[in-house]
Nucleic acid binder design. Sequence first.
DNA 1: ACCTGAACACCGTTCAAGT
DNA 2: ACCTGAACACCGTTCAAGT
Lengths: 247, 247
Amino acid sequence: MKKTKKTSEPKKRMPGRPPRSAGEAVPFGRAQVVDGAMKLLQEVGLEGLSTRRLAARLNVKSPALYWHVRNKDELLQLVADAICAQIVLPPRKESFHERLKTIANEYRRVLTAYRDAARLFAEQPPTGPHRMKLYDVAVETFLDGGFPTREAIAMATFYRHYLLGMITEEMRGKGELRHTPLVPAYALGIELQQMQGASRDYPSLFIAAKLLTGLQPEKLFTAGLNVILNGLEQRVEELRRSKRGRR
Amino acid sequence: MKKTKKTSEPKKRMPGRPPRSAGEAVPFGRAQVVDGAMKLLQEVGLEGLSTRRLAARLNVKSPALYWHVRNKDELLQLVADAICAQIVLPPRKESFHERLKTIANEYRRVLTAYRDAARLFAEQPPTGPHRMKLYDVAVETFLDGGFPTREAIAMATFYRHYLLGMITEEMRGKGELRHTPLVPAYALGIELQQMQGASRDYPSLFIAAKLLTGLQPEKLFTAGLNVILNGLEQRVEELRRSKRGRR
DNA sequence: ACCTGAACACCGTTCAAGT
DNA sequence: ACCTGAACACCGTTCAAGT
């Protein structure tokens, strides 16, 4: 996808290319567009990220973007892939369990660093070289773990959803989102507190709402992570047993 | 939320209300708006569901909607809640394991019946009485399972994300989405097949891409479900042990 | 090769005005 | 109480035209 087809991109600086003369306009390529989009994302969030705003930020009229990028969707995928590029993949020699753990922690490390990144990842399919490589490594891990192919790809996908879900939840109420009107989880809690009849209609939720502050994200993340890792480990053993039984 | 505050709604048919005379315009309330939105959702999907289209569908000018509904967001939440209303909650007497299982199966049963429902649920926070009740029951289940409050609400949330993730994936390529250009999972697979170098760059993914057809959704769903259920069960026992150890 | 001007077909929402 | 007309401030995208 990087070196194959994709949108026409300024040629890779071929030998005979004329050197840029002194007062020429700032070079402006796909990289700057993506970079600008990432910064804009940080500032205004996923909702606020529009092609027109991005153009304005780059001191350019909005149709200009369409020279560098097919459409908004491709732009978002490029942004997601650029973020994903920072994820460090686990070496294959690590164990099944360890590999999944480092994938999880890396996911979290990188996605919590960018505003709305988890939501972006959830919305955009894993196109783009880095995301596909990550996907590939995940599938490989499950294959190495003994999962049959179909199940391996399913598990890699479910695992991804689970991680994104945990990270999304962790990001609610976090700094980056505080400008947003009111973050759902907290809003829910506050609403519940004010809502007469809440303690009758939603007793457990009402109890929980009181504890919405003072959450310790990492702790919950590892708790959640252990749940799925243990579940997967159990499945691995199950598969191993059934294999051994067959021969 | 139903009987408390919320947007002004045609009064609950007070005693002295004048009966509707013969040739009067079709009664038109919030219920019809939500109903129309659900039908429109089925036809055009989440992307296509705009307030203006909905208005047109109801033979009304778009500002008219704002009498019945605060804004588009509230409308979407109402739609989500209406769908959620069909989920049958497990009785409390069932075991932890059983309750989570029926929640999962009900989720799947209902959400696969509506186009883009899983995505709608993932995007919209669980406001609305039915979704909150469901949330409440989930938290209750985890509390009954022995989870401390903070962990209970976290697990209920993670569990929800996991289920929505599985259902979302199952819906890719399904009938309702076939009109859509090309569904990501399949598109990915097809692209991979055509992509030269794919077998080198993404070997595991490439292998898996060949098997993207012929998936058996229910099978994968239960496989995925068992993973998380086993993981949770293990955590329950862990909590039980540590409790017993403390006294 | 890269950008602008002008335009198209849409959005969500507000608000005064009608009935 | 409920709806319309007119308008506002936005969208994403195309396409001929400029340089």
